[in-house]
Design a protein around this nucleic acid. Structure first.
Length: 573
RNA sequence: UGGGGUGUCGCCAAGUUGGUAAGGCACGGGAUUUUGAUUCCCGCAUUCCUAGGUUCGAGUCCUAGCACCCCAGCCA
């Protein structure tokens, strides 16, 4: 499938298997919270979790971490499923943390019975005050020593809805003096009389992430729980919960699942953290992405400039390019930001071999071949790919009235210019060599037409075609070309780190005003009828995709995915 | 000032029980080319955050520093 690059997580799994841990089994999960759209950063985690499961013949679940109904919405779960599938992955099981609500409750009772959890009546503010600070220990809650029966009774009444939102919490009884704040009697359950998108009004107490996540992993038989660095100091709590609960051997805890027909073998999973994927020239935080959308700075979540997966898809990025992108970056524990050029490189790599070539002119300059009869018309055969004959050929009509790219003509050429100049020659791709005999201008001095003569001895197939000229340019037949809206996209921000506001400027001040430019171009007629999301290389211009939503046969709309590498433009700078 | 992490080429990132710095991207040069694309060669860290130390030998071990990231939600 892909080259297997070694990294610390792969090595760890190999070691575990060699040791015979989990019987050699590998089970992972991708656990998004359905409260937003997936972005490129999530893709790194998706590729890792599904990739490890795939490489070791294991399985990967898609699990919605829906433990906070006040923030989550069903709208996102479908979008997330689409994105994961589009990325090319298939989950073994589609699950929700809310599938385990009954298990979480039983676990809560078990902790209480073991004297390891208690119902606390402190308000949120009080809890904060009792927690202490980074350098000072916290103080015990006055409710910390309630007896087991009282706790059990109170917990049952919490579930029954007898108390107001926020009135009480179930807390783990660990150590208020721990240097790790996560261990200072963390809340396990809070009261929220909110309807849940999956369980409706069945519950009014909802579990906290740390508590629900480890139990969910164990219940599903996850072997390797892979997450990002910020959860590193939550790992002691992850382990604490699982060690107290011993879900593997206490079948009573998972009985409610079997009663529902959900048969899974519990495990004792281990959490491992890796650095999240950061990309330069973009922002990835949920908050900023929402702001971009809500403030109309972009055209929605799937704006082709957005780092969301739906945006990447609409932009035309092949999902395979995104997969190789994260593979190239690798997985480590160093906080790192990868360059945007790596992503572009992956996209070009993928598309170079797969995309058929086409001719298109985006900034037309009329050209007339004066030494051909005005009514001359012929059909040329072009290879769809310069080095892949299996991609076949297509017909391209040719007549004496053409459009070339305005940029491919220069009245006063800069040094090193290889294209058309007055009196100079250039090759028209697939046609032959033409000489510029006359430059026609309007009253303002703007060039409005070029009159050229074609050297008939240089037509393809003739010996004269071997003649070398410095440049070859693309063109389109004026009579048969089809007009199209072409959206030229570029990176959304014009600074590498838009998150950096140390100079008093925010990401809003760094939006690239040229990130979206809409032009009207002319395409060779074979592009008249292509399906949405089909990708092509417009020769010498870049890779383009028929827009997923706006492209229609009556109104062609193409998005520029990425330009071709351009060593000439680069050298000019 | 508490705890948890991380520091290897411009950006990522490998570096086995210490044995004398992989690879990718970017970049520079050259060759091929009817896309200034692709492809193909060649080059690109006497050096691994710093300073000491151990050793015949250290990116890898020890000591002391420095820098950066994360943590005080009844968010995930």
């Amino acid at each position: 499938m892909s080259d297997t690059v070694s990294h610390f997580i792969r090595s760890m799994i190999e070691t575990d298997r060699a040791r015979g841990a989990h019987g050699g089994r590998v089970a992972t999960r991708f656990p998004p919270e359905p409260n937003g759209y997936l972005h490129l950063g999530h893709a790194k985690s998706i590729c890792l979790n599904f990739g490890m499961a795939h490489d070791f013949g294991g399985s990967c679940n898609l699990r919605f971490d829906d433990t906070n109904p006040s923030k989550e919405d069903i709208e996102y779960v479908n979008a997330i499923k689409d994105d994961v599938r589009w990325l090319g992955f298939e989950w073994a099981n589609l699950l929700h943390a809310s599938d385990y609500f009954e298990v979480f409750y039983l676990c809560g009772e078990k902790l209480i019975r073991q004297g390891q959890a208690y119902v606390c009546d402190l308000s949120a503010d009080d809890v904060r005050a009792y927690r202490g600070t980074l350098t000072e220990p916290g103080r015990n809650s006055p409710f910390r020593d309630r007896d087991i029966d009282t706790n059990l009774e109170l917990f049952r009444r919490m579930r029954a809805g007898e108390f107001e939102d926020g009135a009480r919490t179930l807390r783990a009884r660990i150590d208020m003096a721990s240097p790790n704040i996560n261990l200072r009697d963390p809340a396990l359950y809070r009261i929220r009389k909110v309807r849940h998108q999956n369980t409706g009004d069945a519950w009014c107490i909802y579990p906290m992430y740390d508590y629900a996540h480890c139990i969910s992993d164990a219940v599903e038989g996850i072997t390797h729980s892979l997450c990002t660095l910020e959860f590193e100091d939550h790992r002691p709590l992850y382990d604490w919960c699982l060690d107290q609960l011993d879900i593997e051997h206490d079948l009573a805890l998972t009985e409610p699942l079997r009663a529902k027909g959900l048969h899974m073998t519990p495990s004792r999973p281990r959490q491992t953290e890796f650095a999240r994927g950061n990309l330069d020239y973009t922002v990835m935080s949920k908050r900023k992405l929402i702001a971009l959308v809500q403030e109309g700075l972009v055209d929605g979540w799937n704006d082709p400039r957005m780092p969301t997966l739906s945006g990447a898809r609409r932009r035309g990025f092949p999902s395979g390019a995104i997969r190789t992108f994260w593979e190239r970056m690798g997985y480590s524990k160093q906080v790192a930001t990868i360059e945007y050029s790596v992503l572009e490189g992956c996209v070009r790599d993928d598309l170079d071999s797969k995309a058929s070539r086409r001719l298109a002119v985006l900034d037309p300059l009329p050209v007339t071949i004066a030494n051909l009869p005005p009514d001359h018309c012929e059909t040329l055969s072009f290879a769809n790919h310069p080095k892949d004959p299996t991609k076949g050929t297509r017909e391209v009509s040719f007549s004496p009235r053409l459009y070339i790219e305005r940029e491919d003509f220069a009245e006063v050429p800069p040094k090193g210019f290889h294209r058309l100049v007055p009196g100079g020659e250039v090759r028209l791709r697939g046609v032959g060599i033409v000489r510029c005999d006359e430059v026609v201008k309007d009253s303002n001095g703007t060039v409005i037409e070029l009159r050229v003569s074609l050297d008939a001895s240089t037509r393809p197939g003739l010996p004269g075609a071997e003649r070398k000229v410095k440049g070859t340019i693309h063109w389109v037949c004026a009579a048969s070309a089809v007009p199209a809206e072409v959206r030229l996209y570029d990176r959304l921000f014009d600074v590498p780190n838009p998150d950096d506001d140390s100079d008093g400027k925010t990401y809003r001040d760094h939006l690239n005003p040229r990130s979206k430019i809409i032009v009207r171009g002319y395409l060779e007629s074979s592009l008249r009828d292509v399906p949405i999301e089909s990708r092509f290389q417009f020769e010498r211009l870049g890779y383009f995709v028929a827009d997923q939503f706006d492209h229609r046969m009556e109104r062609l709309v193409f998005n520029r995915i990425v330009t071709l590498r351009d060593s000439y433009a680069k050298a000019e700078k």
